[in-house]
Design a protein around this nucleic acid. Structure first.
Length: 192
DNA sequence: AACAACCTCAACCGCATCAGA
DNA sequence: GTCTGATGCGGTTGAGGTTGT
């Protein structure tokens, strides 16, 4: 019977962090299996990578998410869905894990609350209009068999969520860059 | 003070994708 | 083209902390 190596699991110690950081400084953040071995850590490479990415990496911003960041996360999530690494890539100093956790523990609840409130307060007239539009979109989608030019299937109930008219010039510039970048990469095509 | 319920977040797991042989 | 190891990602878990009773 081949012996299967048992790795350390659970919380990292300060000593382990120090060893890992030392080896990465020399070798760079790649070949995690080798790094784990060189550092003399009884950890799997995957675990080392995660520790580095989420905690030890330079320029990681720790502490509370600001209101601006929260707003950005909400919008990006609306745009990208649960693609945490993409979202994190747009928020300097934050990791995908951090954003994912923040979403699951704070924002998903917040959104549920808002949706419940909206359901109660939204006038039935407005709802009828939205439902009608949605039905039309579905009909149109069904009738255009090959999809063709029909990108209208992507629709949002709360259009005001993407109302950027009150944004600062800096945020607008950032948003433009963001959208340009994704258009160039065609990465938004995957979203449909 | 003691306990339960709830919350947060670091870490793990499984799968997909990439890159090199 | 295929195989294999490395890497990246999103979902999930669970330990530890906080709050409520």
């Amino acid at each position: 019977m081949a012996s299967i190596k048992e790795f350390n699991r659970g919380a990292w110690t300060a000593e382990e962090d120090r060893k890992l950081a030392e080896v990465i400084e020399i070798n760079g953040p790649r070949r995690w299996k080798t790094i784990a071995a060189k550092a003399g850590l009884n950890r799997c490479g995957k675990s080392c990578r995660l520790r580095w990415m989420n905690y030890l990496r330079p320029n990681i911003k720790r502490g509370n998410i600001t209101e601006q960041e929260e707003d950005l996360i909400l919008r990006l999530h609306k745009l990208l869905g649960n693609r945490w690494s993409l979202i994190a890539g747009r928020i300097p100093g934050r990791t995908d894990n951090e954003i994912k956790n923040y979403w699951n523990s704070h924002l998903s609840k917040k959104i549920n609350q808002v949706e419940k409130q909206n359901e109660g307060s939204r006038s039935s007239k407005r709802r009828r209009v939205i439902d009608h539009k949605a039905n039309e979109e579905v009909k149109r989608g069904e009738s255009s068999s090959n999809g063709g030019e029909d990108h209208s299937k992507v629709k949002f109930d709360d259009d005001d969520f993407f109302d950027f008219s009150n944004e600062s010039p800096l945020t607008l510039e950032w948003l433009n860059k963001f959208l340009d970048l994704d258009n160039n990469n065609n990465s938004l095509c995957e979203l449909s």
